[in-house]
């Protein structure tokens, strides 16, 4: 199969073009995926900042009822899978899931280990390092952000609070959004890129095949038929006419066949054959 003229002409360009397009699509997909993920994390970090700013006044006033309401309302938002605030000791003070209030967060959990890997917990992290991705107990993919609630002069100077000025982090806001919209968009992108690759493959193979069939294979077949019939002794045949190398080859063969025939006729008639030019 691979020894045929058509295969020799089609396989290399089809393989080269399709392979290159697939490599480019895979790299493009990887770059787009990273960009989309970073955008989601940025969006989530901004959301965490907004929540911290929204709850600041309630925290200063030590209005726990208002804090509970704010966290509860945010947790009801579509796509928000978890939102909670826990203190420095890891005790959950406020959560959209009321069952986990007053429970202790596992420091070895995927999102906590980044800060708690060493003997002393890190107190400041880059924006991207604050994010973590994990699959929750219900099997859903989550992107979560942990944003520290830093101590401020208004906090340690407030009469109702017990924080000292030395305490840098008062608590942590932990918010998790569902990855489902992101995964859906990525799946659509994957499908479109697959269709694009298949279209490139079809166009390359189809285009090269069509051009080859029209410009090379068909003339060669006609020439082959003409040569076969001439070899069988049929005379007066007209060589296929093409304005390219195949046409030139057909004309040369027709001239050669005519010369051989006239030489044979002369030999049969008893006259001397004409000298070759």
């Amino acid at each position: 199969m691979f020894k045929s003229f058509a295969a020799k002409a089609i396989v290399p360009p089809a393989l080269a073009v399709t392979g290159f397009v697939i490599v480019c699509c895979l790299l493009l997909y990887s770059v787009i995926k990273t960009d989309m993920l970073n955008d989601t994390i940025r969006h989530e970090t901004n959301l965490a900042d907004t929540i911290i700013k929204s709850t600041r006044y309630a925290m200063l006033k030590d209005d726990r009822e208002m804090l509970r309401n704010i966290i509860g309302n945010i947790g009801q938002q579509k796509g928000v899978e978890q939102v909670r605030i826990f203190n420095k000791k890891g005790v959950v003070a406020f959560s959209a899931h009321h069952a986990e209030v007053n429970t202790i967060v596992d420091k070895k959990a995927p999102g906590c280990i980044a800060c708690h890997a060493g003997p002393v917990a890190a107190t400041s992290m880059g924006r991207m390092e604050q994010a973590r991705r994990f699959i929750d107990a219900r099997g859903r993919s989550i992107i979560a952000i942990t944003a520290p609630v830093y101590n401020e002069p208004e906090c340690f100077a407030a009469p109702c609070h017990v924080h000292t000025a030395e305490q840098k982090v008062l608590g942590i806001l932990d918010i998790g959004l569902s990855e489902e919209p992101l995964q859906r968009t990525l799946a659509t992108l994957r499908m479109r890129m697959t269709v694009f690759c298949l279209m490139i493959l079809a166009l390359t193979v189809g285009g090269v095949s069509a051009l080859l069939q029209r410009n090379v294979l068909m003339p060669i077949r006609e020439l082959w038929e003409y040569v076969s019939r001439t070899r069988r002794g049929e005379t007066g045949l007209k060589a296929p006419v093409y304005r390219d190398e195949i046409g030139e080859l057909a004309r040369s063969f027709q001239e050669m066949a005519a010369k051989l025939k006239s030489r044979d006729d002369d030999r049969e008639g008893g006259s001397d054959p004409p000298a070759d030019r």
Binding site: L15, A16, T18, G19, F20, I22, V23, L26, L27, S30, K33, T34
Partner: peptide, 12 residues
């Protein structure tokens, strides 16, 4: 993220 891109390049 990029394993399959290198694999596709190598295979081609």
């Amino acid at each position: 993220e990029n394993f399959w891109a290198v694999f596709a390049a190598g295979f081609t």
